[in-house]
């Protein structure tokens, strides 16, 4: 066995990203779609941190990217859930198939 290198962590984050992608493609409920997107964002965070730690240990740019991605993910989740609740009020369902029409 080789010691844990950058490649191991990148394989882990790639797997997590495509698990999220699979969930995004198969789910039809808006909240579960949001969960799949969170998994994908987390795998990107792991990538940023791993590249920062293993290739450029003199900088901390990757850590800052992770912090900002986390912040934006929180804002995105809050807005998405507001939209989901609004959609539930008008359609009584949060299935993407039931929200097919556009207003304008």
């Amino acid at each position: 066995m080789t010691p844990i290198s950058l490649t191991h962590i990148l394989i882990l984050s790639t797997s997590l990203f495509f698990i999220g992608a699979y969930g995004f493609l198969t789910r039809r409920n808006l909240i579960t779609l949001l969960m799949a997107v969170e998994l994908m964002l987390n795998s990107v965070n792991i990538n940023f941190v791993a590249f920062n730690k293993y290739l450029y240990p003199q900088n901390i740019d990757g850590i800052f990217f992770t912090v900002f991605v986390t912040t934006i993910a929180a804002a995105e989740a809050a807005v998405a859930i507001a939209i989901i609740i609004n959609l539930y009020r008008s359609h009584n369902s949060i299935d993407v198939e039931d929200a097919g029409e556009m207003k304008y």
Binding site: I31, L34, M35, A77, A78, I81, I84, I85, Y88, I94
Partner: peptide, 9 residues
């Protein structure tokens, strides 16, 4: 937040 929205919808 996700759990709250599950309970709401």
């Amino acid at each position: 937040l996700i759990i709250f929205s599950i309970f709401l919808t």
